[in-house]
């Protein structure tokens, strides 16, 4: 029961974050509900995989991004919007901010150190966090872009007006 509550809480906050970031990019209101849904689904998938299944963040983020990318395709013709309209803002709550900060912190600390061992320690921290951050972002970009290229026909005809005779 507690697990379910935590997942629901994660979904709610991820949906709110996705809507907010979508509004910065001037997404129309009709597309925002799909942003919220995709953001909730993607982030909660990553949360479940990392917390309860022990999957590494890189793999979890890539799988979640792939799920977002694939789910965006059927929604695109419904909302008459290109799929990237809702999948890109939905991805933004998953960007690993803390890893980036620790990488920058490691950089500053290792540059201001005077001993080799201290420098090595911070250099390791900088590289570990920096590489994790870069590869997570690369995995997410790959995951969300691949379905758009695979389902080219749907992705690039989503804004077409279908007139039913």
């Amino acid at each position: 029961m507690e697990i379910l509550f935590e997942i629901l809480q994660d979904m709610l906050f991820a949906a709110m974050a996705a809507i907010g970031f979508a509004s910065i990019s001037n997404t129309p209101f009709s597309a925002m509900k799909y942003c919220a849904l995709l953001g909730a689904v993607g982030h909660s998938m990553r949360f479940v995989m990392m917390t309860y299944l022990g999957v590494h963040i890189i793999i979890a983020a890539a799988i979640a991004a792939l799920a977002i990318g694939i789910l965006a395709i059927p929604f695109a013709p419904k909302a008459k919007c290109p799929p990237e309209t809702f999948s890109y803002p939905a991805l933004l709550p998953m960007i690993p901010g803390m890893y980036a900060y620790r990488a920058v912190q490691g950089l500053v600390m290792c540059l201001s150190s005077s001993e080799e061992s201290v420098f090595d320690h911070y250099f390791y921290l900088m590289n570990f966090n920096g590489l994790t951050c870069i590869i997570v972002v690369a995995g997410m970009v790959l995951g969300v872009t691949l379905p758009i290229f695979v389902f080219k026909h749907i992705s690039f005809s989503a804004t077409r007006e279908i007139i039913n005779d």
Partner: peptide, 9 residues
């Protein structure tokens, strides 16, 4: 919306 979004973050 952005303020709420970042707070949710």
């Amino acid at each position: 919306l952005t303020s709420i979004a970042n707070a949710s973050f």
